[in-house]
Design a protein around this nucleic acid. Structure first.
Length: 196
DNA sequence: GCGACAG
DNA sequence: ATCTTGTCGC
């Protein structure tokens, strides 16, 4: 079972709303999801994102009946100024394997990336490989992948690609995002009528 | 001093 | 992250 977590905001950022979903693997069928809302505990400060999003994610996670074996996070893992991004923070607190999958760059340099899906390049910072940029779809902006907790970078890249059959983002992230934001045909959580 | 800066 | 319609490109 693979989990996905994402956070959205309401009331001009005053309320943080998290969604954690659980998908089967490798089938990627949606098994379950949970939602939590709390007053936003911390402002957005680059490099300190976990203090803003992890608390509410933990509350949503606690509500799950079926706990996932690993979680794909929306944000950096080891590819962080102090090597401890959101994915590392969440994984350590839950003592669960996690992977950081960010949609944009925070730190690190890299060589040009091939356009073909599946290609990747190491992300380097201070002579160290901290993660990788991965082409999850032909000719699309790359994903910033890095290990979060108890997962190696090669395994992280492989898992992210296996969770991304069609779109730029992993299915886990797409579902969590659709549920965390208040978009789509999301009416009653029980009816589960959501469109990623 | 200047530019960059996950969500 | 969020506001917010149409639109450019494959």
């Amino acid at each position: 079972m693979i989990g996905g977590a994402d956070v959205g905001f309401e009331e001009n950022g005053a309320i943080a709303r998290a969604a954690v979903v659980v998908l089967s693997f490798p089938g990627l069928e949606r098994i379950e999801f949970a939602i939590a809302r709390i007053p936003t505990p911390f402002p957005y400060v680059p490099g300190f994102l976990s203090f803003r999003e992890v608390p509410v994610i933990l509350q949503a996670f606690d509500q799950l009946q079926q706990k996932p074996d690993l979680i794909l996070c929306d944000g950096q893992g080891y590819a962080h100024p102090r090597r401890f991004g959101l994915a590392c923070h969440l994984g350590l607190l839950l003592n669960l394997p996690t992977i950081g999958v960010a949609k944009s760059h925070l730190i690190g340099t890299h060589e040009p990336l091939d356009l073909a899906k599946g290609s990747w390049q190491p992300l380097i910072d201070r002579e160290e490989t901290i993660g990788a940029i991965v082409r999850s779809r032909h000719n699309c902006r790359p994903l910033y992948v890095s290990s979060g907790h108890r997962v190696s970078l090669p395994t992280a890249i492989e898992l992210v690609l296996n969770c991304t059959p069609r779109y730029r983002l992993p299915e886990t992230t797409r579902w969590a995002d659709a549920i965390a934001s208040q978009r789509g045909a999301f009416k009653d959580p029980e009816s589960a009528q959501v469109n990623p």
